[in-house]
């Protein structure tokens, strides 16, 4: 599916903010990902063409950044902080519970396509560790029960 008029409009709206088209590429991929959940090979080609970049160059950027998804993800993305303060405050138990509850390991999507579980570095909520993000929401002061409950709200 080619870029929609809306995606194209949103990407082009970024042009005046940078002196080169290439500089827009991360924003452009984030825009497409917001609309489609991830960035397919086809989307990548369309973006590369719009920004006058080579496909390989753009894929090199795409694969560098962990918040750009080059594979389909579930309806909700869970980012579980595995950095030091969360580790001290009980990350291991949290991960074990979430993995067993979801039947998915880190980096995997649940069989029903509802959640993708990903590791993330320090979320900057260390005084309320352990923490995780689900889509755009930050959840803090977690324990395995609270984390499990929090996921209930994402259908």
């Amino acid at each position: 599916m080619p870029l929609s008029a809306e995606e194209r409009r949103e990407i082009e709206a970024e042009f005046p903010r940078y002196p080169t088209r290439r500089a827009v590429c991360i924003d452009a991929m984030k825009i497409v990902q917001r609309h489609r959940g991830w960035i397919s090979d086809e989307s990548l080609e369309d973006i590369a063409q719009l920004l006058e970049m080579s496909l390989d160059e753009l894929d090199g950027v795409a694969t560098f950044y962990n918040l750009l998804f080059r594979k389909p993800v579930g309806r909700h993305v869970v980012l579980l902080c595995d950095s030091v303060s969360c580790w001290i405050m009980g990350y291991d138990r949290l991960r074990e519970r979430l993995c067993s509850k979801l039947g998915a390991r880190l980096g995997e999507t649940t069989a029903d396509g509802r959640f993708t579980l990903l590791p993330i570095v320090c979320l900057g909520a260390c005084d309320h560790a352990p923490a995780m993000m689900v889509d755009e929401d930050l959840h803090r002061d977690l324990d395995p029960e609270k984390a499990e409950q929090a996921l209930e709200n994402y259908k």
Partner: peptide
Amino acid sequence: DEMEPGTFKDR
């Protein structure tokens, strides 16, 4: 780009 583990001040 506050991402140093253990850092939550700029937020």
